[in-house]
Design a protein around this nucleic acid. Structure first.
Lengths: 186, 186
DNA sequence: TCGAGTGTGTTGTATAAGCGACACTTCCGC
DNA sequence: GCGGAAGTGTCGCTTATACAACACACTCGA
């Protein structure tokens, strides 16, 4: 883990952009946010934006991924086992994330957002799985992670239809079969 | 008034430093604030500090001057006459400024602060005076401004001993003679 | 159909900011 | 007194950001 420290200017600029993006997305639809808007709000040069992001969609992905990752509090349990408790926490984080998004305008980006969530989940699951099972076959591990992320994301979509239910209570019954799936793969 | 726009990086960095200074001065004595403290708090490089300020005393002056100038709301009445109303507002601003300072630790810097206040007042007075009297003699105008700043500052020190009195009520009785002084010079 | 207006990406160049290193001072425990 | 720790100011070099300009695409109203 010898990650070379990133330049503080980069950290500053990135969070200026991300914050402005979150800010703006509270005011208008994602699709109506222009790079010009964004850089004006963040008080950074437009060329600087392109130094950090390919385009506005790239920013969308990275910003949402980061917010989700914070919600997931990944660092807090990156080394814990992928058991029922962990899954409940992850699921709750995903539902929280979707709730926070529902306050914002993102019409037309539902699929993108779904993909981002599944991607993040997949990364986390695969890390946790390989952490608790270092000699497991890499490919089957990836597949398990992918399946898990689909199941958890799908459950969160289900959950959104039953407003008011506690996420933990909602997901717990479904977990035994999911955890069985993990065990089978191992 | 063709002021060349200042680089946004400069604005950002300066306010990072100033804000951190205000922040830190709420926690410890001015004299205990080191440049290292400051740059750590502001998350900027120490060399960058010296790019903008000679040393920590230079920062003290500039930071306090700026805060005072904001309190004075100079832009708001730069073109108005230097009459009783203006003087009351300026005096009130000075007392507000001193009140805000009294919540902070600045032992040993009383003289410096006094000088800063008088300097700022002098600049403002001289601008207002020359604005309302373009053909006035420059030197006597400077002298008037200097005298005024001493009187107003002195009154604010007086006022601090009589806690609770409204600044306006406090200064108004003294203003007739002050305004007379201005008239005599003209 | 056109042309003006607006947003997008990209490029070259200037400059602010970061970084490590240095010599120097001050302070404090031994 | 001495030596180390910590702060100060400065320097040379690298890198991120600002800025102006450009070609391109798209839209919209005349």
């Amino acid at each position: 883990m010898t990650q070379t420290k990133t330049d503080p200017r980069v950290i500053r600029t990135r969070s200026l952009i991300m914050d402005s993006f979150i800010q703006l997305s509270g005011k208008k639809d994602f699709k109506d946010i222009t790079v010009k808007d964004l850089t004006a709000e963040a008080m950074i040069n437009r060329a600087t934006f392109y130094y950090h992001f390919e385009d506005i969609y790239d920013l969308l992905e990275k910003a949402l991924s980061e917010v989700l990752l914070v919600n997931l509090d990944y660092e807090h349990f990156r080394d814990s086992r992928l058991d029922e408790e962990a899954l409940v926490r992850i699921f709750t984080a995903v539902t929280n994330f979707q709730l926070s998004l529902s306050n914002r305008c993102h019409s037309g980006y539902e699929d993108t957002i779904a993909r981002i969530i599944r991607n993040q989940l997949e990364v986390i699951f695969s890390k946790m799985l390989s952490g608790q099972d270092p000699e497991a076959d890499d490919q089957s591990l990836q597949i398990t992670a992918a399946m898990l992320s689909w199941e958890i994301y799908g459950a969160s979509v289900e959950w959104r239809r039953n407003s008011g239910v506690d996420p933990g209570d909602f997901i717990r019954p479904a977990l035994s079969s999911v955890l069985n799936g993990i065990r089978v793969v191992r």
